[in-house]
Design a protein around this nucleic acid. Structure first.
Lengths: 229, 229
DNA sequence: GAAGCTAATGTCAGCGACTGACAGTTGACA
DNA sequence: TGTCAACTGTCAGTCGCTGACATTAGCTTC
């Protein structure tokens, strides 16, 4: 469906109607995240959001299935990136290696992608609200397990296995996901919200999986336990 | 005010008022679970529940913080049992060992404890509704992470560590929790809902953690390797 | 450029979860 | 027995969310 007068070289610009839709959706997202970041999730009503954009409440619910969904609009970016990154890993890598490298790689350029939607700082503030609001945290965890389910499928396909027959894909992904969530929490709770800090935290946490699972912690000192005592 | 009435022991029998409270709460739980198991969660209104017990809606919300809470009333039993079991493990065990043994042990006698509240079969049906209802699944996962947080604290204390300084307790618990959830899902999705089936599934899944995390899956055969290492 | 189609939006009414305020009832206890 | 506190019910109202129907406004076609 080529519309009139769009050169092949330039990105096919959608019609006015489509652009308007995009604009109101972005406006809703921005207004919602700004309100949520400042007033909190529960103290932000849908009426507040639609009043800021001057559309009807009904319109909001046509764009988003619920109040929760708008809060995760930016987060979804990162999720899809991770999934893509895992698919792109070369097949000779170990499943765990593939997951680890994919997650670390997917952080490169994520900031720019986010910034195209909302200010990065805003997204950070919203993320902390998500982690501290019971209803949003619950939704976040559910979304995470859905992502894990897809990851398990990808891993199983990589290895030529049946997800439902062999439990290892789901187990690997579940364990991996748990560790990632620990890293995310430490990151958002800490001071340094840079991408590098995230990478460091993630690698440290993933490196600790072996030591954490195996053996007696008290026998030998762990790789880096500078902060003990 | 406090529901801390000692349900055991003969001497301190609670007064009539306390007994009435207990009775209405149990009635609400039973009615709610029965309705949820048969009609599903979303298709069960609070009005339906209170109509079955013949109390006002306001009373329901004085007993339960929300509609969700009543659905997890029985599940909470298992959670507290697991926590107790971990605390009871001898300190010479490896953290992973302690968790594993605690979870497996806590299933002994769980059926009897559940049956004191509602028929076991009813609880099973509700559990499957929880896993298949987005809103309930989200709440379930959030509760699970709260339990993991407490478990991490217990593990850290066992090993004489600071939960916030050393990441290993949370990492271990997160990975462990992920695997447990895989086992739970397989169990509730399968046919055999017996305690033994759960034990078998749990042990197999936990035995697969090592193989899943380490090495190349394609070199070694056997999706089911006897517990080595 | 006017007419027709259709997607996007607004309005209205209503359901269900949940809460605060107030009043009535009923165990507990002196 | 009477007083007090706890338990419950009623009522009104907020908020998230949805279906039905009317209205507006791009886009297409002639």
């Amino acid at each position: 469906m080529e519309t009139a007068g769009t050169a092949v070289g330039a990105p096919a610009r959608p019609g006015l109607r489509e652009r308007r839709k995009q604009r109101t959706r972005d406006a809703l997202v921005r207004a919602a995240l700004e309100l949520i970041a400042t007033r909190g999730y529960e103290r932000t009503t849908v009426d507040d959001i639609v009043a800021a954009v001057d559309v009807s409440q009904r319109t909001f619910f046509r764009y988003f299935a619920g109040k929760e969904e708008v809060a995760f609009f930016v987060t979804r970016l990162a999720e899809s990136r991770v999934l893509e990154a895992v698919r792109a890993r070369p097949p000779h890598e170990t499943p765990l290696e593939a997951l680890r490298r994919a997650v670390l790689d997917s952080w490169d350029g994520i900031n720019e992608a986010v910034e195209r939607l909302v200010p990065l700082d805003l997204h950070m503030r919203v993320y902390r609200v998500i982690e501290s609001t019971p209803a949003l945290l619950a939704a976040h965890l559910r979304r995470a397990t859905e992502l894990e389910e897809e990851l398990a499928r990808v891993v199983a396909e990589r290895e030529g296995l049946d997800v439902d027959a062999d439990p290892r894909p789901r187990i690997l992904v579940a364990a991996f996901g748990g560790v990632v969530r620990v890293a995310e929490r430490r990151w958002s709770a800490g001071e340094d919200h840079s991408t590098e800090a995230m990478r460091d935290l993630m690698t440290t946490c993933l490196d600790q999986v072996g030591p954490a699972l195996a053996g007696n912690w008290r026998t030998g000192p762990s790789p880096n336990r500078a902060n003990e005592t």
